[in-house]
Design a protein around this nucleic acid. Structure first.
Lengths: 222, 222
DNA sequence: AAACATTTGTCCGTATGTATA
DNA sequence: ATATACATACGGACAAATGTT
């Protein structure tokens, strides 16, 4: 007998879940710093739960590449390599581009006006040099498009890649350029005109531009 | 005498790891059928381990979308929806296309001749209507390219998506078309000529073609 | 409705294997 | 090299929640 999927009822929040979320945030914001050795007993005490949900959380985080477990030896937060952004952005870029293409089929007037207002907030944050806020708003913008694509596989993957992006931005000096504001505007226009090809290509470029800026700033340093 | 380079240390095989691999295979080949309720105690006994590694495995499988856990209620194998291939293939296609592009920078004569011989095996399997073997060989072909792309993020994602593809092929009548043989050949040619754009585009098409065939066969049924 | 039987989530002890003195 | 301390992987017990009679 199949288990009824009761989406309506409030799903019980498990200790594992809250432990997972907390540790994830600690890793992203650097409270647990890259390379830090993780002692499950300590974490369990800090979180007020036992070692079991902590260990389970750590294993999930390992499958996402945020933690590395050496069985029997140790568990540590993975290092943050600035260079990893070169590997991270291309897959994210093509998935966001694909999302844009797919989202166009489900785009409502409502979603489009949301995109516009989010992009306005994004612009304001950037003008005020509030890069932290800008990053969050930028993520909302892209998340809205990914959601509209309505593809669970893409959503899941993007969520995990985004965690890495956020951590990288926290730990490095990578910032979003103001040119994104205009690019976002153009993307919205293409979406309105249902121009999948153009919207998709520009979205991909929007993500790869971060890489371009990064490469430039690295060259300057040398 | 120079100290021998510390090559692959024999990483201890954990009970969790072996449980995970076994359950994964059982889910993919249908031994654990879609929708089946999973009792961790039963699984633990069947695998000769305790509930702990079983539960840890199930949680990993949940993060991959092969298992769904309803906290406090039940755990079940996710259903196989034939239709889900429409969601599954597009992200896989764009990631494989990207891999092709990236792989071209790391392509050696050796890898190219491997691709050619694998494609020959693939052709033979298809001519003999051995679709099961063909599927495995096709996967090898694409895996080689993904490996050559040398991007850990892409590798990890593709591995998980491939598990879903395999399961779908096991449970449905989706099969690979002989046209893939020629497409693979052309892809190899483009790779040899370092034509990233063309190779990438054709690779994407190669994957989306499965969807085209699927849509056709669905229409016939109606 | 209420007590029962399951099954799950969590806790904690123990043994095995690892690092360190 | 040996012994010691320690962290981890696993097991088993208990408790909370579910659904069943």
């Amino acid at each position: 007998m199949p288990v009824p999927a009761n989406h309506s009822k409030p799903v019980r929040t498990t200790a594992k879940e809250s432990a997972y979320k907390q540790i994830l945030h600690w890793i992203i914001d650097g409270t647990l710093y890259p390379g830090e050795k993780l002692n499950d007993t300590e974490l369990a005490e800090a979180l007020g739960v036992s070692r079991t949900p902590v260990r389970e959380s750590l294993q999930l985080l390992e499958s996402q590449g945020l933690v590395k477990m050496y069985p029997g030896k140790a568990t540590q937060v993975t290092e943050v390599e600035k260079e990893s952004i070169r590997d991270l952005l291309p897959p994210l870029a093509v998935l966001q581009a694909l999302s844009t293409e797919l989202a166009i089929d489900h785009m409502t007037k409502d979603t489009i006006s949301s995109l516009k207002s989010i992009n306005q907030e994004f612009a304001n944050a950037l003008y005020q040099k509030d890069f932290h806020a800008a990053l969050n708003i930028d993520e909302q913008f892209h998340q809205l498009i990914v959601d509209a694509a309505n593809n669970t596989y893409i959503s899941g993957i993007v969520e995990k890649l985004q965690a890495h992006v956020r951590r990288l931005f926290f730990h490095t000096s990578i910032i979003l350029s103001e040119s994104s504001i205009e690019v976002h505007e153009t993307i919205i226009e293409y979406i309105e005109k249902r121009e999948k090809e153009k919207a998709s290509l520009l979205m991909k470029q929007n993500w790869l531009d971060i890489l371009k800026d990064f490469n430039l700033s690295e060259k300057v340093k040398q």
